[in-house]
Design a protein around this nucleic acid. Structure first.
Lengths: 147, 147
DNA sequence: TCTAAAATTGTATTCATTTCAAAATTAAAA
DNA sequence: TTTTAATTTTGAAATGAATACAATTTTAGA
């Protein structure tokens, strides 16, 4: 279980002021490993925070992902999904039920026979960063995870 | 160079009737390896085919990608990008200029020092297919690239 | 040529996300 | 504690990529 203090610490660690709303979003993502959309998070938190606005959810998710406290997934072509687990791992999206699963650490296309839970039809690998031309001017403005 | 006959052959190979519009879209993607959006393709083809409709571009891109003749990329959070190169390869998106590059075949995070053209800040790996529950009912309806 | 099926077109709509300015909250200064 | 400035939140309006849909056009077969 994550205490409010743990969550505050996590936010401060990424230079995010821990407001009530930000703590709620961070906590939701830490406790719900379902890769939810902004709207799912809004619907879940709205009853407990009746004044909550959708814009705040979008603002918060943008801030948290830009600061590296969470990860934004573009695996679903309709909505952006969010993941509170920032340890590097790969994802699987079911084309029928649209659920997003975390794949086991040792999963590769070569050994996928061992993981018969997933029938894989496609794989996409996306790297992001700065190209040669844009590198010089932009590096300073970005927090870089040089993994 | 790709002749119209080459392009027709490619479409037929994926069970797509080679209409004028479909040939134009397929040809554009084969000759422009810039990972364009639907709208870029529309703007490029529209002068030569004045009656062309945006809907046709969307319909065609959907058909071609569903049939496996092209690949739809969700590397850009705003628009879907399309790639006529269906040989497995990975992509890089510059966060500043938004250009999408093909990465060299031998590129990995381990040897990325060799490829100093790209300063990488993040990597996403997305698998798609059918989960255990949905597997039984759906496999027959899908063309599966069992790579 | 006639007819049916398939493909294309254009308009209207949807819906996730963004913009923006006002209101509320927080933090800092006096 | 008051005052003031900066930050955050809020909700209404706007944006824009993509889809739905019905009408029109084209294609293919009888």
């Amino acid at each position: 279980m994550n205490t409010i203090l743990d969550i505050q610490k996590r936010l401060l660690q990424y230079n995010i002021k821990p407001s009530l709303q930000r703590i709620a979003v961070m906590q939701y993502l830490m406790e719900n490993k379902t890769h939810p959309t902004a709207d799912i998070i809004y619907a879940a938190l709205s009853p407990a925070i009746p004044t909550l606005s959708r814009t705040t959810i979008y603002n918060t998710l943008k801030l948290l992902s830009e600061q590296g406290a969470i990860i934004a997934l573009n695996i679903d072509e309709k909505n952006v999904r969010y993941d509170g687990d920032i340890v590097a791992h790969t994802h699987f999206r079911c084309k029928k039920c649209s659920r997003i699963y975390d794949l086991p650490k040792n999963f590769t296309l070569e050994n996928k026979q061992q993981f018969l839970d997933f029938y894989i039809t496609e794989c996409q690998v996306y790297y992001k960063g700065y190209c040669k031309e844009c590198k010089k001017t932009s590096i300073n403005n970005e927090i870089i995870n040089n993994f």
